[in-house]
Amino acid sequence: MQDASTVANASPEWSALLEAVFAMGKRLGVRSSDAFRPVDVVEVSVVASIRLPSGRLMVDTPWPEGRPGRELAERIPPGTYDVEASWVEAPYEFMGESFDGRECAAVRLLVRNEPVSVWEMALGVEDDVEQIVAGDEIGFETDTAMGAFADACGWQALTEPFRQFWERHEQLPGVAIDRETEKLRSGEFEMVTHHASQADLLTFPAEEGVTAVWIGRTAAGEVAAVAVAPYLSWLA
């Protein structure tokens, strides 16, 4: 039988990047599409705090894509947790104009204020470790470039604004429709609160296709953070 942690452990290069991307002022490297464009971390800040009353964490797209949400196999203590984001800039010019190339590079749910000793890909409750091959990306899949952290007990209710938006959009194509969510950071993030379950959902930018989800563990093996870093795959 395979050992899940051995199969899913981050490489030394990825481990270093997952630490560096949340270090203000750190130079991460260069864009893979432009070796002369350095990528620097220019902001690291808390976007919001979310309530996870069951300790069962969902990390998936909130959009209706014909499948249940992806719940992590790892449990965390029930509570309220900060979600921190990192922004990078890689300035460039195009057709005589200058752009800062600012993008949200990574987000992480802060579980414990302790150093991360090892990073590993986060298994879902439905994942079979026997089917995982070393080097595979383990995470959620979406074609909407949006992911979310949320409590599993309120997932159905917390994602309802996205289902309603989708249904109205299908019924009224071309009509501008707003989502019943709280927009944060100029709409880069969206938050949904479900009062009955006392749970929250927070969206974040993700990749189209598979977005890997990482767990950072302390030296004692406890969960310190859960991170998603889609931008790092664009680095050389």
Rank of each mutant, 00 (worst) to 15 (best):
M121R: 06
Q2V: 10
H169P: 01
R108L: 11
D60M: 01
R56I: 03
L110S: 12
W87L: 08
E180D: 15
T61L: 09
V107C: 07
A150N: 04
W87P: 03
D40T: 15
R112C: 12
E120P: 02
V192Y: 00
I50T: 05
A152N: 02
W155E: 01
E65A: 10
A212M: 09
E120V: 12
P161K: 02
G187F: 04
E93S: 13
N9Q: 15
C104H: 07
T193N: 02
A206K: 03
A105F: 01
F204L: 13
V118N: 01
A152V: 04
V42D: 07
V46P: 02
D200H: 14
I76H: 07
I215F: 01
G135D: 07
V175N: 01
Q171H: 13
E170I: 06
E141P: 03
S5N: 00
E182R: 07
P38N: 10
W234E: 06
K183N: 08
E137D: 15
T61R: 12
E170Y: 01
H195S: 15
M95E: 14
T142Y: 06
H195E: 14
S86Q: 02
G135L: 09
A35V: 12
Q2F: 10
V223K: 03
A145D: 06
V7W: 09
E114V: 15
Q2R: 14
A8H: 02
G25T: 08
I132W: 12
Q164I: 12
A134D: 05
E130Q: 11
W119M: 08
V192S: 00
E130V: 05
D200N: 15
W234F: 11
D178Y: 06
T203V: 10
V39Q: 02
P173R: 05
S45Q: 09
P230E: 02
E137K: 13
L109K: 12
L17T: 07
V30E: 12
V228D: 05
R112D: 11
V41M: 07
L235D: 04
R51H: 00
G55R: 07
A150M: 14
P205G: 13
Q171C: 14
P64Q: 12
T203I: 08
A10S: 15
A229K: 05
D3Q: 08
W155H: 04
D178N: 08
V210G: 06
A199I: 05
A145K: 13
P38K: 03
E188T: 13
E207G: 09
S98D: 03
T159R: 13
A212Q: 12
V7G: 08
R67C: 09
E71W: 04
G216T: 00
D200S: 11
V44T: 13
A212E: 15
F94M: 12
A145F: 11
Y92Q: 09
G154C: 02
A176C: 11
V42I: 13
G135F: 09
E167P: 01
S197M: 02
E84L: 05
T211D: 10
M58E: 01
D40F: 05
V111G: 04
A90H: 11
Y231T: 00
W214P: 08
R217F: 02
A199V: 00
F36I: 05
L72Q: 01
D128K: 11
D82H: 10
Q171W: 09
A85L: 03
E114W: 06
S54V: 08
G79C: 01
I177D: 09
R179I: 14
L110I: 15
G154K: 07
G209P: 14
V46F: 02
M146Y: 03
Q171P: 00
V175C: 00
